[in-house]
Structures are given as C-alpha cells and as structure tokens.
Design a protein around this nucleic acid. Structure first.
Length: 414
DNA sequence: TCTGGGGTCCTAGGACCC
DNA sequence: TCTGGGGTCCTAGGACCC
C-alpha cells in the first residue's frame, strides 16, 4: 500500500498520579489517588482495585482500603506536561495538543531527519522517561483515530505501531467502547443490535447504525470503523466557549446562596475573556438539584459582553427563571455559567445609543462603560498583585471547592 | 452521610424569513 | 385562502471526552 503510518498519539500514563510518585519515591508501587473529596487521578495500582477518576473519595477508600490520598502539585503537572510536549516538538511542529497530558503529532515531514515513525516514537518514550522520569504510551498509525486507539492498547508504558496493510485486522478485533465517541450510552445501544466489536460495527448496515445513533454519530462511527476518517492535525484550536462551575453540596435555592456564587463564576469567566480580548453573545446557566438532575437556561444577546457584572446579572435572571419553573426544588447542588458565541472584542468599546432595555449589559452604554472601566481596574490590580488581591464572592467558596490551580489545568486556551 | 471542573458536538422543535 | 419547502437562528437537553 502507498500510505505509511505517520500519526503519533502520545499519552502520559495516569499523569497526576505518576507525577506524585515521581516527586515522592515512597509512593511508588503503591495505590494512590490525587484529590480528596473526589478522585482527580488514580495510579495503576489503585485502578487495579476499581478506583477511577471522578469517583467520590469515600467510595474509592471502600474499594481500596490502603489507598493513599495525596494533595496535588498542580504547578508540577503543568511544568511536566509542557515539558513532555516539548520533547515531541523537537521532532515536528505539526502537533495538536488535546489536554495537559496528551497530544497528536504528524511526523510525515521529518522522517528523513529522524528515521521511521516507530523509531521516533521509541526515542520520544525514552527521552520522556530519562529526562522527566515519567511513563508515556504512544500509538502510531495512519489516522488520528487509529493512533489514539493504539496508544490506549499500548498502555501502560507501551508502544503500538499499526501497519497500514493490516490495520483493519487490528481494529476490527477491538471492542466498540475503545472508539472515540462511544461511551456507556452508545455502547449499550449498540449491544442491543448485537454489536460489541468494531468489526461487527463495520459490517452493520450504515442506515441501521444511523437510525440507532442519529445521522452525524452514525456516519462518524462507520467511518471510524473503516478507518476512513481523514481528519488532519490541527495545530491551533481555539476554544468556542468559556465556562465555570461550582459544586455546592446541598444548599437552599435562595438568592443569598446563588448570587455570590454566580458573581464569583462570572468574574472568573469575565477575567479570562477580557485577558484575551474576547466577549460572548450567549450566556448559559446550569442548575443542578439535590437529586443530581440538572436544567439549563440560555440567552443570546445581540452584542457580545465580557463584563463581570453584566454576566452575573444575566446569570441571576436565568437562574431565577429556572427556580420559578421548578417550585418544588428547594435544594441545589451545583451552579454553572458558560459563555459561547465568542467574538474578538477590543477592550476599548464603541459608544452605542442609550436606552436599550438591557442597558448596563451593553458594552457601549454609560453604565456599560463604567463597568468595563471597573473590570479593567480589577484586572490590572490582579496582574500586579496576584489573583487573590481582589476576590468577589469569596464567602461562597467552601472547603469542598476544588483549588483554582486545578481549574486552571483544565482550561482550554481561548 | 459531599458525584469535580472545563470543554465539544449533535438533535429536535419552534420562530422567522423567503 | 390553503399548503409546502428550504435556510438560519435560538433554546434545551444529552452524550461524550480529558
């Protein structure tokens, strides 16, 4: 066959947990979890007991009585994640970073310098191990999707190179759950059709798969099952939305509870947007009740905003609407705000006519201008004296909330 | 007696316009 | 007057990923 496998998918193994074991040798070989109230990451030793990320700490302790919880060294995660990506960049500029610990790279343009893709992958793994002390798994294949599956199969601390000549033999034996986009719900629906392997999915009629999963998902999965998805590496991907959320435990659904929380969330999002000269037209809130059901409400404005007060007030109105529609719900467990329909937005804003119904939310009105100035002042103080120098709504931050350093690790670049 | 936080994409119905 | 069709935008919800 003409084509060769040049896409690498590199994935640091149990990343946060591996960093903790690197920093403290006493933790090596032991089941550990990063986090406390909730498991943010679990070592392979802990996973053997069924401990998974996102799991409540209590449940994890039940499954694994010897589990050691460790506080996160978030600055180290950022530093080591960046350093691992830098090793990849020594070979090619064609890199798509997916998250702090995971990236695709296309080495098609550099094999004449560094050898075959498999050789490059071996070198990357050896260097990350030697220079950073961390295990990393790599999959090499003709497409992104297959490379990603290969790295999953390679874990932990392995390398899998998929020969294009036999790639479907490799792919079709694997369970559907390994495919990108197949989670528990899709897996269960496919199982009803008797489809549990990727090969069985490939052999199913495309129309029946589309009927079952919808047009887009059906077509995508059929293409993935035949490894015919041509998506290329995207070196620069910008976020399409920015959000923030806060779990509250169980709190009464009253203004005194939700106003400070929403203001704090709006402030975090607004500051991120303003730092990148962005603003958004659509504001969405999510309210989760005590029983973990959640409801969303959104509003799309005619002009984009980024001012903290404006975001907070719209969010408050939306939350009031949710609560009015759910009179019976007296307890909330989470609040979230997300801003989408993002647009580039110069900090110096144009004057717009006064008298809009949403005056004060409009960037150009008198009230809007005053708020922009206030935001800019706060942004400047924080830049000079640190993030904590001005803190709205700190009263709403309980002991349960996740540290801001962890939040920052999960943020996409805007 | 505590299920985290930040994202992406898709669907379906309704409003509105041509 | 009645009926039909396509396109776009908005909204609410859901599945999924790291």
């Amino acid at each position: 066959m003409g084509s060769i496998a040049t896409i690498l998918h590199a994935d640091l193994d149990a990343f946060y947990a591996s960093v903790e074991q690197l920093l403290d040798p006493r933790l090596r070989g032991r089941p550990i979890a990063v986090g406390g109230g909730v498991v943010l990451a679990a070592s392979y030793e802990a996973r053997a007991f069924g401990v998974r990320s996102g799991m409540p700490g209590r449940r994890a302790r039940q499954l694994c009585p010897d589990l050691v919880f460790v506080g996160g060294h978030f600055d180290q995660y950022q530093r080591l994640g960046d350093a691992a990506i830098r090793v990849l960049s020594d070979f090619t500029p064609s890199i798509e970073r997916i998250s702090i610990d995971e990236a695709f790279a296309d080495v098609a343009g550099c094999t004449h310098l560094f050898g075959a893709p498999a050789e490059i992958a071996r070198t990357v793994r050896a260097r990350v191990r030697a220079e950073l002390g961390l295990p990393i798994s790599i999959g090499v294949a003709r497409t992104k999707h297959l490379a990603k599956i290969a790295s999953q199969v390679a874990k932990p601390d392995g390398l899998v190179v998929v020969d294009p000549d036999t790639e479907l033999d490799f792919l079709h034996k694997l369970p559907v759950g390994l495919m990108w986009g197949v989670g528990p719900a899709t897996e269960a629906r496919l199982a009803k059709l008797g489809v549990t392997t990727i090969g069985q999915l490939a052999e199913s009629s495309p129309t029946s798969v589309e009927r079952l999963l919808g047009q887009a998902a059906g077509r995508k999965l059929t293409a993935l099952a035949w490894n015919s998805d041509p998506r290329q590496i995207q070196t620069r991907r910008r976020a399409r939305s920015a959000g923030a959320q806060s779990a509250l435990g169980r709190r009464p659904a009253i203004e005194r509870v939700f106003k400070p929380t929403l203001h704090h969330l709006a402030d975090r999002i607004g500051a991120r947007l303003r730092a990148k000269s962005l603003a958004g037209r659509t504001i969405t809130v999510r309210v989760r009740f005590a029983d973990l059901r959640s409801v969303t409400r959104s509003l799309t404005l005619s002009a984009p905003i980024s001012a903290t007060r404006a975001l907070a007030e719209i969010a408050e109105d939306l939350v009031r609407g949710v609560l009015a529609d759910h009179h019976d719900e007296r307890t909330i467990s989470l609040l979230a705000i997300s801003v989408s329909n993002l647009e580039a937005h110069a900090i110096v804003q144009l004057e717009l006519p006064l008298g809009f119904a949403d005056e004060g939310r409009r960037p150009g009105t008198q009230k809007g201008l005053a708020r922009s100035r206030a935001d800019r002042a706060v942004d400047a103080i924080r830049k000079r004296f640190g993030e904590e120098a001005v803190d709205y709504g700190s009263a709403s931050r309980g002991a349960r909330s996740v540290p801001d350093e962890f939040r920052r690790l999960a943020e996409r670049e805007l």
